[in-house]
Amino acid sequence: MIETVASVGLPVGEVLEIKKNRIVPEYGDEKVWKRISIVTGIHGDELEGQYVCFELLRRIAAQQDKLSGIVDVYPAMNPLGIDSITRGVPAFDLDMNRLFPGDINGNMTEYLAAKIVEDITGSDLCVDIHASNIYLTEIPQIRINELHKDTLVPLAMKANVDFIWVHGASTVLESTLAYSLNSRDVPTLVVEMGVGMRITKTYCDQMVDGIFSLMKELGIWQGDVPEPRKPIISEDEEDVCFLNAATSGIFVQQVKHWERLKKGDMVGQIIDPLNGKVLDDVVSPVNGILFTIREYPVVDAGSLLGRLLREEILDR
């Protein structure tokens, strides 16, 4: 059933509506039903979650008799952003994921954020699906604030991702949806996968399998689910090595994503098309595996080109 989570009139003949689709079992005792919320589209340029929502609903509809709990699907938290190919909230140039928990009496964006938190609160689990940005491709992973790791890591293990990254607490992250929900006792997993403005079907299918696995874990799904992948878990910031551009130019990658590299292996080149010269050979600074790779070729000095997980953690 399609429900409206929040609604605001825009200046000229248009209403902004945030919608969700609630799927409930065909029979059973609703008092014992658990509830999972699948959220995506907070950033309007991240589209991987669109296919996840579609495929999840399609598979549930195909075996609706196996459903034993509530599934809420929120495909577009920032509908103006998605429909206008804008990462933030259009007209405000604000990152929606820096507005939570919002304010029910606040400005339009704060009001929307507050309504979203209000609606999701009460879920037994929330999965917030992101797709990196237009610059970087990410291997399917779950990022967890260390403050919430005891609750979230065991759940993330069931999510069929390749990597779980437990990162340090940061004051800035307190304004994210995930932080607000975790603080309200709604365990919330933040998924990062793929790249902005694209749909990577293999990653999306992998994530849908993961959501079914989580639903099975919570008792929301009675059908068969594939055994989830065993993810690499990183809890030490030293596990991750960042690769930043030494100079401005055009980055051309020469490796595959999720490839094992030896220290000194070529990752790509930064080139100068005007002079026909190579400005920098980008090489791996460590032995490891590349879990983030630069997708958008134009780089400034400092632009992130990739992230590697050190070899030591892979063999741990």
Binding site: N244, D300, G302
Partner: peptide, 25 residues
């Protein structure tokens, strides 16, 4: 309003990081 290539805000990057991304630098 924000940085031309990645739309980040320099006034959300202090104290900065000299080996980090462009606006952090």
């Amino acid at each position: 309003r924000f940085w031309p290539t990645d739309n980040t805000d320099i006034n959300r990057m202090f104290p900065g990081y000299d080996l980090g991304e462009t606006t952090q630098r």
